[in-house]
């Protein structure tokens, strides 16, 4: 029998590496399905990371830390929503502003956390099940957030397919004028979607700093927010495919570490380039196919209330 001893920790680390992307990209799927392109994901994520980490250091429970991290992301998203939905500011530029501001502010707040660690994050332990060989550590031995992220995927699939609210969000994203004419409050619905996206990015960021590393380092998101944006395109705006895409990217970033472990003589920098290059390649392959399948038709278009 093959030795699975090394495979299980590898798969576990893939799941840990992927979970921030799952949260963040799911949030952005909802935002974009409502027709808003928020490029400030990286900034919302890093704010979640620093706030979540600060709460743990301050002695709050992990649950509280994640709640505050989500609120931090939500606060950033609120800023974005006010500027783009109410003040009609350029959405691309505002997203960039969110990222630059978030990176700066998080570095300022996080400069006091140099060298501190959040400590190991508790894993779920289910009697009997978690102790099963192979299946136990793979299915029943993760931290609670992993299960939350998976539940969120299912919830969003259901939300978009089977609920009235999901239909309304999609309507607003596909044709805001029609949705407005029927009487839906486009701005309010979009604001809700933006805030949800921000909260999820905050959770994703906090997972990175509180569970995955568990440290806070300036600029630690290292482009994950942007990769999450690419994942949304990769997933054709579908929550189920987001999960697939996120695990794929998590896999790439972990393989990169393991290749080094095997002593294969490839410079570490080239391996570190892989996730970024893979993002470009995947994005290009997807975009080359029929024009942006599944993209909300009003995505990125400003809605102005005329009366």
């Amino acid at each position: 029998m093959m030795d699975l001893g090394f495979l299980i920790p590898a798969l576990q680390s893939i799941i840990i590496a992927s979970t921030p992307l799952v949260f963040t990209a799911l949030g952005e799927v909802v935002t974009e399905r409502a027709g808003v392109l928020n490029l400030g994901v990286e900034g919302m994520m890093i704010m979640g990371a620093v706030v979540g980490f600060a709460c743990v250091i301050a002695g709050f429970s992990p649950f509280t830390a994640f709640v505050f991290a989500a609120l931090a992301g939500l606060g950033m998203a609120l800023l974005f929503g006010i500027m783009t939905l109410l003040l009609y500011a350029n959405a691309v530029a505002t997203g960039l502003a969110l990222t630059l501001f978030g990176l700066g502010l998080s570095a300022l707040v996080g400069s006091q956390f140099v060298g501190l660690s959040a400590g190991a994050f508790p894993k779920v332990s289910i009697p009997v099940l978690s102790d099963l060989p192979v299946v136990g550590p793979l299915l029943f031995g993760h931290d609670a957030l992993v299960y939350v992220s998976l539940a969120l995927v299912v919830a969003l699939i259901w939300f978009f397919k089977h609920t009235r609210a999901g239909l309304i969000v999609r309507a607003v994203g596909d044709d805001h004028d029609a949705a407005h004419a029927i009487g839906y409050n486009v701005i309010a619905i979009r604001m809700g979607a933006v805030l949800f996206g921000g909260a999820m990015a905050g959770l994703g960021g906090a997972y990175l700093s509180v569970v995955q590393t568990p440290l806070f380092i300036e600029n630690m998101t290292a482009g994950r927010g942007w990769i999450a944006l690419a994942l949304v395109v990769f997933a054709s705006w579908r929550p189920g495919r987001v999960l697939l895409g996120a695990y794929l990217f998590g896999g790439i970033s972990i393989i990169q570490l393991h290749v080094q472990g095997f002593g294969i003589a490839i410079p570490s920098q080239i391996l570190s380039m892989l996730p970024y290059l893979a993002t470009i390649v995947v994005l290009t392959v997807i975009s080359a196919r029929a024009a942006q399948q599944g993209a909300p038709r009003s995505l990125g278009k400003t809605f102005k209330v005329t009366r």
Partner: peptide, 25 residues
């Protein structure tokens, strides 16, 4: 911390984009 620079820069871009509204509308 040196990061105050980043905060200043981000803040400025925010204000720039939101005040652009008065010249357009």
């Amino acid at each position: 911390p040196n990061a105050v620079t980043g905060v200043f820069q981000g803040m400025l871009l925010f204000f720039l984009l939101s005040t652009a509204v008065i010249s357009d509308y």
